[in-house]
């Protein structure tokens, strides 16, 4: 009789404990699933932002390089003509333009753009 009572008491308490643990487990599972969805969404958004930024910078830089190269080619044609005609003033002016174009670094524009993009995204995407 005593064992039976102990068994019944134990069983009753254990069932309550199990039910409580099931509820707790269910709650934790849901919370963790939600957090994992959040993590995945933030990751996708962050990667998308990085990709977009990179693509824009690549396009910007390619355009800049192409434009500058064609300008420089034109200037060298003019430089050759000036050398041929012994026109020192034009030689000096064309060469100065070439050097100034060479000094103007397209990467600086990319940096400017990247920092603007970072400012825009700051606080919006964080893992």
């Amino acid at each position: 009789m005593i064992l039976s009572a102990v068994g019944t008491k134990l069983t009753g308490k254990s069932i309550v404990d199990v039910l409580h643990t099931i509820a707790e487990n269910h709650k934790i599972t849901e919370e963790q699933q939600t957090r994992r969805h959040e993590i995945s969404a933030i990751k996708d958004a962050t990667i998308e932002a990085i990709k977009n930024e990179r693509e824009i910078i690549e396009k910007l830089l390619n355009k800049e390089f192409d434009l500058k190269n064609s300008k420089i080619d034109e200037l060298f044609v003019r430089l050759d003509q000036a050398i041929e005609s012994n026109n020192i003033e034009i030689v000096q002016s064309v060469l100065a333009t070439i050097v100034s174009l060479a000094k103007d670094n397209p990467l600086a524009k990319a940096v400017e753009f990247a920092s603007l993009a970072k400012q825009k995204n700051r606080g919006r995407i964080t893992l």
């Binding site: 134990l10 069983t11 254990s14 199990v18 643990t21 487990n25 934790i28 599972t29 963790q32 994992r36």
Partner: peptide, 22 residues
């Protein structure tokens, strides 16, 4: 009767921990 619930509770606890680790 005594061990069953204990195993169940332990299993559920481990499951919760596994969820957090995942």
């Amino acid at each position: 009767i005594v061990a069953g619930p204990l195993i169940a509770v332990t299993g559920l606890y481990m499951d919760s921990k596994a969820e957090e680790n995942l």
